[in-house]
């Protein structure tokens, strides 16, 4: 699911919202890290005989508390909205309004984490049948805390709502080759397939980009069995396109890919040109929409 973020430059960015699962995974990682840190200090204390065995548990709880609060706030400050767990899961806190993350927002969302996650979690450990009311309250609290992110589009928990933040998947920029250029290399020596303008009026951007995905998939190394299926798919596709656009000549099966590439180029050029003139064609249904209006 994509959410929009409006940076000060005024060009909206589409960023994928991190779901509940990946955020819980990051949270578990962080809890493990802080637990290990506080556990090792506790063992050190015990070895140096700072404490009685009776108070060991209380001191452990205290250490965990004292380590985790600054851990979340400071790591998100230093790594720009990422704790170690979030780095591992490649997710990140961003400011909901597109500005930069403020210290206030990070402190607030992590203090609310205490009230939303850790306090009910400790209550959960104390659940028993002797105190049904308290147990019920703790359970209801946890359920509500978990439901809040599910109720809104950006999967924001209460702390996110108050601090004005949400969590996204970190996008990975990978620039693939331009298919239009590849075409030029391959067809330099041959007479290309040519299309007439009315033949290109059938499809829209969605079909074009689906074709793009398919053509890119051809570049990946083929597996024997998949290869045979692909051949069949491509042959069927060529046939469908030919019928739809009423392309009279038959295409020899060894030229199938070449035909598709040529069609991709021609179609893209055509659609981009239409778009420049204000005629955006989302998909093949654009013809019908025009008729209605």
């Amino acid at each position: 699911m994509a959410g929009e973020l409006m940076p000060p430059e005024g060009v909206p960015l589409k960023l994928r919202i991190a779901g509940i699962g990946v955020r819980i995974a990051a949270q578990i990682t962080d809890v493990a890290i802080t637990l290990v840190a506080s556990g090792s200090i506790l063992i050190l204390f015990a070895a140096l005989r700072f404490t009685d065995p009776q108070t060991l548990l209380a001191i452990g709880a205290l250490l965990f508390f004292l380590i985790r609060i600054p851990y979340y706030v400071f790591s998100e400050l230093v790594w720009n909205g990422q704790t170690l767990g979030k780095r591992l899961m490649k997710i990140k806190v961003v400011s909901h309004d597109g500005g930069s993350l403020t210290t206030h927002a990070l402190v607030l969302r992590n203090l609310m984490k205490e009230a939303e996650i850790f306090l009910p979690a400790t209550l959960l450990f104390t659940l028993n049948s002797a105190t049904p009311v308290a147990s019920g309250v703790a359970f209801g609290w946890i359920v509500i805390g978990l439901l809040v992110p599910l109720m809104n589009r950006h999967r924001r928990r209460l702390g996110d709502l108050m601090a004005g933040t949400h969590v996204i998947h970190l996008p990975v920029p990978v620039l693939l080759k331009d298919l239009a250029n590849e075409m030029r290399v391959q067809t330099e020596k041959r007479k290309p397939y040519a299309f007439l303008s009315h033949q290109l009026d059938h499809y829209g951007a969605f079909e074009l980009q689906t074709l793009e995905d398919l053509l890119r998939a051809q570049n990946s190394p083929p597996v024997a069995k998949r290869n045979r299926n692909q051949q069949a798919t491509i042959a069927a596709l060529v046939e469908t396109i030919r019928k739809k656009i009423k392309y009279a000549d038959t295409v020899p099966s060894k030229d199938n890919l070449l035909f598709l590439r040529a069609f991709y180029n021609a179609q893209r050029q055509h659609l981009e040109q239409r778009q420049l003139f204000g005629d955006r064609r989302k998909n093949k249904h654009h013809v019908m929409e025009d008729d209605i209006s």
Binding site: K14, L15, L170, P173, A180, A205, Q209, E212, L271
Partner: peptide, 15 residues
């Protein structure tokens, strides 16, 4: 309408 280019630019600008 080059999807690869659009996605790349989107990700790069966001980063």
């Amino acid at each position: 309408l080059d999807k690869a280019l659009l996605e790349y630019l989107e990700a790069l600008t966001a980063r």
